[in-house]
Nucleic acid binder design. Structure first.
Lengths: 298, 298
DNA sequence: ATGTATCAATGAATTACATTCATAGTTTGG
DNA sequence: CCAAACTATGAATGTAATTCATTGATACAT
């Protein structure tokens, strides 16, 4: 059967001109090369070259094998390089799952320098999971999970990356802007804007409104943070977002924020990963950068 | 090192879904396959797939190897098919050298049915040789040589394919058209049209005119037989061509031909080839068809 | 739960194969 | 015509692939 090995010999013979030289370049004895070619010629029942005196003249079969070699060998070599990169973690595809909508802004900041540092690592962000974020992690749909709900499970590893406070965002001139803290009951008359996900996944509902059996007057969903805050700024409603996120908009838009309840809603965000992946260079580095980013922000 | 073998395993596992099935399809034991993959994984220091329970989930490295396999294996397989065709003579490139200008017409007739019969064999016709036709044959520039001058030499094989008589072609109304035979002296006043090759290679010179130290009044060269005969028909000169070639034009053009000398000039055309090539199917068949063609013509 | 069939991994034994060694035959150029 | 360079070949060797026999898992049915 035609093997990579044979093609390597053929290419090297073509480059060096003599079998002996080619054998040297391939770290083989001349004998080994001679045997190998003889065997190949027997198996394909065709000669590859014909020797007239000391010069080789290539048969048509030989020429087409040479073409094949020039075409295919680089692909083998490239593949091995690639494997090397995968092995050392210098190449890969980092698929990040998000179970924390407002963290998207934070992620963008972390991703950008990461992409510069790891030009061979691509990043995918996924937000929908058939069997939840943990399921996606376990079934190798994603490699990292950004989530407020770490789950102690063998094979998985969670690292806290940052804490933030969820606050109520209102227009400057909104009457609630004057409050120091607000209670669930004060939202009954308000229009609440959130991301379009189920209420269980919205802390403003699960940790604030629902425990007190309160519901806002109206509930609107908007996909993007920018538009959401434009709406709030225009007085069309209120929303709940991390406080640090608002700090960035407060200059451009006339916004204020208020603590939710006397103690405030404090969230802890974790990055989850498979334990087996901890050793992968770029994943390790991503974690490191993620934590640093947080320090800079605080 | 990454081998064809590994790619074959990877592709088959992807197709069959389980290692055991893949091993069966590859005529290997499950154990052999398992060992092979383990070894490959060690050499590239990366896993190809990860087993969760009984299902395989492919790693990125594995996926890229699978892509490589799907891309490369067909090329190996095609190459082997090709070698098979070369070996059995069902594919090739028949390079024909011509040392006999007027034979071109004859060659065309032989080539046409040959191309139909051997769709995988291409034909090249060459007419210029740095070291002569024999040299071209010996240095593998051509595979067949059509020539009037066979040379007994070891390694070469010549077969006579057809005989013809070289005749003087003239316009119907030309005064020479009434002669039964003509002698060199009668051409001294004529315009002679030939192919544009050296006079040594023109029999009308080497075998007819020069032995008697005669030269035509004028010597014109024309590349194509058609135009040449148009010129003769128009009374612009005379030419020397095989008699059978004239038979085909005599109806359309007002031509006659006359024997050159009392005995006429009789030529024997041979096909020369390397002895090693006699066994090649399509070459053998070309010879057979070449001879048949002649019989039909006569 | 429990048993069974299927699948994969492993180590040791075996076999097949590639490679080397030693040598002899060719070709080339001085 | 000889020496140097190149190639082919058979036998010996060493290495690597394959098999065998076995065990450990997993999935599925009862």
């Amino acid at each position: 059967m035609l093997e990579r090995h044979h093609l390597a010999i053929i290419r090297e013979v073509s480059r060096q001109g003599t079998l002996t030289e080619a054998a040297n370049f391939l770290c083989l004895t001349q004998s080994a090369l001679s045997h190998a070619i003889k065997k190949l010629e027997q198996s394909i029942e065709t000669q590859i070259w014909i020797k007239e005196g000391r010069t080789l003249s290539w048969t048509q079969a030989g020429k087409s094998l040479l073409e094949l070699a020039e075409r295919i060998l680089p692909q083998f070599e490239y593949a091995e390089e690639l494997m090397q990169q995968y092995a050392t973690g210098h190449r890969g595809n980092l698929r990040i799952g998000m179970e924390c909508h407002p963290c998207y802004q934070w992620l963008l900041k972390t991703v950008s320098p990461f992409l510069d540092k790891w030009p061979n690592v691509d990043i995918d962000v996924k937000q929908k999971f058939q069997f939840g974020g943990i399921g996606a992690l376990l079934s190798y749909d994603i490699d990292l999970l950004i989530t407020p709900d770490p789950i102690l499970q063998k094979g998985l590893h969670f690292t806290p990356v940052f804490d933030y406070e969820l606050v109520l965002v209102v227009n400057n001139k909104h009457h609630l802007a004057r409050e120091k803290t607000i209670e669930p009951e004060q939202l009954i008359t308000e229009t609440l804007i959130t991301y379009p996900v189920t209420t269980e996944r919205l802390d403003i509902f699960s940790q604030f409104l629902l425990p007190k059996n309160c519901m806002p007057h109206k509930h609107k969903t908007i996909e993007t943070t920018d538009i959401m805050l434009q709406m709030v700024s225009a007085g069309r409603g209120v929303t709940a977002l991390p406080s640090w996120l608002i700090d960035e908009y407060v200059e451009r838009l006339s916004l204020s924020y208020v603590k939710l309840g006397r103690k405030g809603i404090h969230k802890h965000i974790y990055i989850g990963m498979r334990e087996t992946d901890i050793a992968i260079d770029y994943i390790h580095d991503f974690m490191k950068q993620a934590k640093m980013k947080v320090l800079l922000n605080e």
